[in-house]
């Protein structure tokens, strides 16, 4: 399997894990280790001055995974930009996952706020990973402002409805020149494999692992699924095998034949 490259960095896994909803920092750490994920995302929040902080940064750094902050909690572009700059300070990385989902029922990403925040952050030197709806034109616009990757959703966050947006995802994958990371809504390892079989560069999953009966085992299942999906993609699915594409002599022949 060839390696994933995001923002110029070669990564050994096509799985990105979110860190929310785990029972404990220890369980999170074990799940991340079991998943083989090379990148994990995390949020930035005001410190609870009275409460105890369950430090995740330290343990995750020990695992050697790359930490990618996100702007979750931001209600508009301005807040997202602010969160991104804070995160850059906090972690010392210029990677940022822009996510702006003000609607509390479905947590669907606000396309305009996402676009505006991404544009500003790219100008500010960030490597932007834009979480967005599965809208091919939006993804094209985000690519044009210089994001490092687009992260279109498979279905609403936490819904486990899988690749509902498969049709659009397929178009995005076909047209995109930046990596496409399918994010949100993946509920089962088979869906993760499916996303990679379709040609997605990577996929992100959180709830499906964290809320599983045995998160560490589920993380391992996702690890295997990601490997299966990508290997299958590289092997060339029978329905789209190389021999189903016309050779150049054939192309020329058909051009002539159609005159």
């Amino acid at each position: 399997m060839d390696n994933l490259v995001l923002a110029g960095v070669e990564l050994p896994s096509r799985l990105i894990l979110g860190t929310g909803k785990y029972a404990s920092g220890e369980q999170l750490k074990q799940a991340v280790a079991a998943s083989g994920a090379a990148v994990v995302t995390m949020a930035i929040k005001r410190v609870d001055t009275e409460g105890h902080r369950d430090d995740i940064v330290g343990p995750l750094r020990e695992l050697g995974v790359r930490l990618m902050p996100n702007t979750s909690g931001a209600r508009d572009a301005r807040e997202a930009v602010f969160a991104a700059r804070l995160s850059r300070e906090a972690l010392g990385t210029d990677w940022i996952k822009v996510e702006v989902h003000p609607g509390q029922k479905y947590l669907l990403p606000d396309p305009i706020a996402t676009y505006e925040a991404s544009r500003e952050l790219v100008r500010d030197g960030f490597k932007v990973f834009a979480y967005c709806g599965a809208d091919p034109e939006l993804c094209r616009a985000l690519e044009e402002v210089g994001v490092a990757a687009v992260m279109p959703l498979g279905s609403p966050i936490g819904s486990a409805r899988g690749l509902e947006t498969r049709g659009m995802l397929s178009i995005i994958i076909e047209q995109s020149h930046v990596p496409v990371v399918v994010d949100a809504g993946i509920g089962a390892p088979s869906e993760a494999a499916a996303a990679l079989e379709m040609g997605a560069a990577a996929l992100m999953v959180n709830t499906a692992v964290a809320a599983a009966g045995d998160p560490v085992a589920m993380a391992r299942a996702f690890c295997l699924a990601a490997e299966a999906g990508r290997t299958a993609y590289e092997a060339g699915l029978a329905s789209r095998a190389a021999t189903a594409r016309a050779t150049s002599p054939m192309e020329r022949f058909l051009e002539e034949a159609m005159k």
Binding site: G20, Y22, M42, A43, V47, D54, I56, S72, G73, E99
Partner: peptide, 30 residues
């Protein structure tokens, strides 16, 4: 006061009366 201060400058930044300070940390989630 809504202006991010780089960590390298924290020890050199003296707070003034009435300053609004926001301290953030990375947490699980998102």
């Amino acid at each position: 006061n809504s202006a991010i201060v780089r960590r390298a400058d924290w020890d050199a930044t003296a707070l003034r009366d009435g300053d609004e300070v926001e301290v953030f940390s990375m947490v699980a989630g998102g």
